[in-house]
Design a protein around this nucleic acid. Structure first.
Lengths: 178, 178
DNA sequence: ACTACATAATTGACATGTCAATCAGCGCCG
DNA sequence: CGGCGCTGATTGACATGTCAATTATGTAGT
């Protein structure tokens, strides 16, 4: 198990079968985790993970309001994605758009009472689920290892991103994790 | 760093700040990884990760053909998702649908020459990217730890899924990892 | 053969994402 | 002041996903 690779690392072009198996396990498990959390959030509070990310940011914002572009930066979404999503959330009365006094191009996104209530109802069950399915599933050592893996992989990703100006670098990520 | 939790684990309801940080890092990094791989696949071969999953399955299938429902089971997609996706792939001449002799309700999905060629062009760069961004980023110990984490988390997920018949259990996962 | 139910696959409606315009207001510079 | 180029935000076109019908065909039981 410790030496399934006859050739030295540097000489290989492609992952071995075992490496590929670990890769698949890893990425699929992370996905399953996300989709389970998303499903619970949805069934317990009728919020999508995107909704949650937006509400979380607004809840923490000064006066429960934020400029649209700041919000986009905060949760790391593309502006058009946010715009579409805000439209849907506004229809459901979770947020409201107001004109911005300082800059009349801008919009201020405001948390509505409905939105605040939805968020408050969602938050404890959601964090409990994170604890149940992630934190408590792991030993302390595994939790540390998870943090270590994340840091290592992120370092590689951003190095690679810098080298090739990857457009997709971190696009979909940093979204709905709260 | 080893004891940021005064209260015993069992007494806690919610994750600590540090646990939440690790959780976010972990899940966001996995997402970033997926999105980087997807972006590279797209730019190098004009295939989405969904396309790749379908083509991979067909490429390995007997005669480069498979019943639609088997294909869905193999890559673990919902049937309607597959149906929609096959429609799009058929328009691009990557696959073809044929009537099934044995069961006239059924459809056989066949890899076209175009589809085969696209897949072959995509596969080596894709695996190289997996190696660069995942396998080679990690030490051997980290790789083992990744496999261990995946197994542990998956066990918890399927236990939780069994307990509450979660509909979303592993829906989006196991898709496009190849 | 006829009814009733299960199965294979597609469809339609809609949620969510991406990318490339578009539109309007802000500011600087001559 | 007037033009011109940023910037903030939205829009439209389209890819992708989910869920709940719908369609057509197989199969079992009487």
């Amino acid at each position: 198990m410790t030496h399934d690779t006859p050739r030295p690392r540097r000489a290989r072009q492609l992952p071995t079968t075992e490496e590929l198996r670990i890769w698949r396990d890893f990425i699929e498990t992370a996905d399953t985790l996300r989709s389970e959390l998303t499903a619970r959030l949805q069934s317990e509070s009728s919020l999508s993970s995107g909704d949650y990310a937006v509400l979380l940011a607004l809840n923490e914002a000064e006066g429960h309001r934020m400029r649209s572009s700041e919000l986009a930066a905060h949760i790391d979404w593309e502006r058009s994605r946010l715009s579409h999503h805000l439209g849907r959330m506004e229809r459901r009365d979770l947020i409201r758009r107001e004109e911005c006094a300082a800059d009349s191009r801008g919009a201020e996104i405001v948390l509505t009472p409905t939105g605040l209530q939805s968020f408050r109802q969602a938050t404890v069950p959601h964090l409990r689920a994170v604890r149940e399915l992630f934190v408590d599933a792991l030993t302390h050592e595994q939790l540390i290892a998870a943090g270590d893996l994340a840091a290592t992989l992120r370092a590689r990703l951003s190095a690679a991103g810098r080298q090739r100006g990857s457009a997709a670098q971190a696009k979909a990520a940093r979204s709905d994790t709260g």
